[in-house]
């Protein structure tokens, strides 16, 4: 049972992120929702590579024994960097929208539709 707690944490992170993305109206809060979902997915990737009673996958002066799976840890680093780029772009667009509209309410930035 104790090994299921990280999965519950992932589910909680993704659900809270989805809640923020669907029900909030401020643009900054939408960006925070996206960040939360991304963090949850990165955590999920690392959790999948855990083996029971394993140590960190580092060779120098290791105490020996089973090592947890290192490939997801490398891929998660790439994913975190991609997330940084996406968040930077989103925030710069939010700054531009604030400069043009003066407001951050999603329901008011509608000039493209009409």
């Amino acid at each position: 049972m104790i090994y299921n707690i990280p999965y519950i944490a992932v589910a909680a992170l993704v659900l809270i992120g989805l809640y923020a993305l669907v029900f909030k109206r401020n643009l900054i809060k939408l960006v925070i929702g996206v960040v939360l979902i991304e963090s949850g997915v990165n955590l999920f990737l690392i959790i999948l590579g855990y083996r029971e009673e394993s140590i960190a996958p580092i060779y120098t002066s290791s105490p020996g024994g089973v090592m947890s799976f290192p490939v997801p840890q490398a891929l998660t680093l790439t994913s975190i960097v991609i997330g940084v780029a996406v968040i930077a772009l989103m925030l710069s667009l939010v700054i531009h929208i604030y400069r043009h509209y003066g407001t951050l309410d999603v329901r008011k930035v509608r000039r493209l539709k009409e």
Binding site: L21, V22, R110
Partner: peptide
């Protein structure tokens, strides 16, 4: 509606 939140709601 043009609102991203509504589209994500449809997704879910």
């Amino acid at each position: 509606t043009g609102n991203t939140s509504d589209y994500v709601l449809w997704f879910v």
